[in-house]
Amino acid sequence: MARRKKKQVSIDKLKVSDKKKRINRSLGGDIAIFVFLILLGLFMIFPIYYSFVQSFKPVEELFVFPPKLYVLNPTTKNFSDMFTVAASLWVPLSRYIFNSVFITVVICICNLFVCCCAGFALAKCRFPGNVFFNKLIVTALLFASNATWIMQFMVYSKLHIIDTYWVLILPSIATPLGLFLMRQSMSTIHDSMIEAAKVDGAGLFRICWQIVVPNSKPALMTLIIFAFQGAWNMQGGALIYSEELKTLPTVVQQISAVGLARQGVTYASAVLLLIPPLVVFLIAQSNVMETMANSGIKD
């Protein structure tokens, strides 16, 4: 399987490099599109770029007017200042970072496990209720949002999980989006492979984890990205009131609430929050595109 994939990729590349003239494309149009995308892209990326620049500026440059879009003397002082500011809080900054990392890792692992199992069952097993569950998931894509937040709060309080790690972890595990993408990706795997495994005497669980999951790596990476983004940016809000259980975004918000006067530290903390999702996405981008290609809803 792996070998066949590699071969396909090389053929694709060959095609691109071989085809000097592209059909139905004018050079003028290409240039116009490029310029348009560059302009729009600058608008999209500017706030992010500017946060990076600001976080490395020394105090003398932060408040210069007109603002400079580059740094003359980059410094990491803002980042060390951030730790100093956070040291005056009740709980050291490292604890918040640990909380965020811990919650993110647990959510990613559990989300993957749960979605792989359920996705396999929905994509490859025929059982009473299959159609119903499939419809339910497509509808649930709509409700995978914060509109349920208030009712969820009541459920949490009944379960007595408010102000524990559980309240952040449990609700983010079973995501309809994750299950949906997993199901779509798994349903492209050929039945013959599963049949073969069945003949060889593998149970359902083993088929799922030794045949189907290893063959849907792109979907795995995609799920990790979405789970990671959600978990990493999660704020405890009203659900967590013990200071030592709060996550990094909460602290960043507290720090930036000081206002624009302490810009260096604010931007340093924002950048700290920003980098991990960007890096994960950059690494996994090609996998994401492959999974999303299967994401279509068919009735």
Binding site: F113, V114, C117, A118, F127, A174, L179, F205
Partner: peptide, 19 residues
């Protein structure tokens, strides 16, 4: 097909409770 329900269960329990 009770195995299938077993595979579906962890997701569905969490999904039903929290969504």
């Amino acid at each position: 097909n009770k195995g299938c329900y077993g595979l579906l269960a962890p997701f569905m329990i969490l999904f039903i409770v929290f969504t």
